[in-house]
Design a protein around this nucleic acid. Structure first.
Lengths: 194, 194
DNA sequence: TCCTACATGTAAGGTGTTACATGATTCC
DNA sequence: GGAATCATGTAACACCTTACATGTAGGA
């Protein structure tokens, strides 16, 4: 009855409020989890597994205007499993970053090209930073009270949002630093002209 | 003949110098790739695939004192594939971070416990930071000349090492900030006593 | 009628981890 | 003889992505 990270993630979302598979899929693609995502093709089978283990239960909710949906809710047993996972120590994440793997081989290409690729990457992270900043603005307008209450979900969303912001800010800054560092070292004979 | 990220990573390592499967496995577990790792059970089949596609070739090297080994080398075709991958644009990495997923559910547990977990995580990242700092010191002592030459592999290793350093530094700082932020908000009535 | 969004699933294939398996050589 | 390291592989399973598949309902 081992529960995967995805399983625990779904339990965590359901601890906030009951939701359908599609609701959870949307949450995993945008909102809450900037740090874990999954497609619906993973979510539906996982919910079935969790229900088989008695951690969630579903009820079919008829809707006018739309197809019926299955709304899942956390059981007491599910809540216990979730709490156990939260309190257990966690190993630091092992990073998988294709771009940084590429950079380790950039000695093979012209510095000018490497600089372009670094600046391109910087721009991508700055875009994400801007997107997260937008979300931050919305939160501060909409959840004033909850942001001061550590027992309300938005408080934690705010904490992880700050993590996302500083991650993207730091990544973009490194890209620009590395590009500049490369520029300064690319041609010793050009240094005087800079 | 689609080549995976792991395949390209191996090509990148072989562009530096020919190596055996075990050499490459060691490199993927420690040295070069802080940003991608793999076990030998993935490396050996991947090398066979690369050879089948004509991107690498191996020669058996007999050794006294040890079992024989297969030393793989990059082919011209492999070099071309590698260069194409390096120059292609890269999507920003999608983060998978179990701890941050947990944090989004920390509103369920006592703030004191959440603070402990955040500080525990901070310590883990500070340990990794210390380890990387040690590597940095060794590099500066051993590769003085190469660190100024963008066409030498250590130059790029240095760039990515800086990325690792600032990533770990930033992560640890966020953990401590979040713990402190939680402490300040956990009990409005305790604020005066702090 | 066609397209989009809602809603739920299954299937195939690639990637990654853990465990199993074998054998050589060196050191204790 | 037994343990450790070097060296190379295979097998089973979990995880994840892409594509396939079906059906409802509303709007252009």
């Amino acid at each position: 009855m081992a529960v995967s990270v995805l399983g625990h993630t779904l339990l965590g979302l359901l601890a906030r409020e009951p939701a359908s598979g599609l609701d959870l899929t949307h949450a995993l693609q945008q909102r809450i989890a900037f740090f874990w995502h999954a497609r619906h093709s993973q979510v539906y089978p996982e919910l079935a597994r969790l229900e088989k283990d008695g951690l969630v239960v579903h009820t079919v909710v008829p809707q006018r205007d739309r197809p019926d949906k299955k709304v899942y809710a956390l059981t007491e047993r599910g809540r216990q499993i979730l709490l156990g996972w939260l309190l257990a120590p966690t190993d630091p994440p092992q990073i998988r970053d294709e771009f940084l793997v590429k950079v380790t081989s950039f000695w093979l290409i012209e510095p000018e090209r490497a600089i372009d690729l670094l600046l391109d990457q910087a721009r991508q992270h700055e875009e994400r930073l801007a997107m997260l900043t937008g979300i931050e603005g919305g939160m501060q307008a909409d959840f004033q009270a909850a942001l001061a209450d550590p027992s309300a979900p938005p408080f934690m969303t705010y904490l992880t949002l700050q993590r996302g912001l500083s991650y993207e800010r730091e990544y973009a800054a490194w890209c620009r630093w590395a590009a500049e560092y490369l520029r300064q070292h690319q041609r010793p004979d050009r240094d005087a002209g800079a």
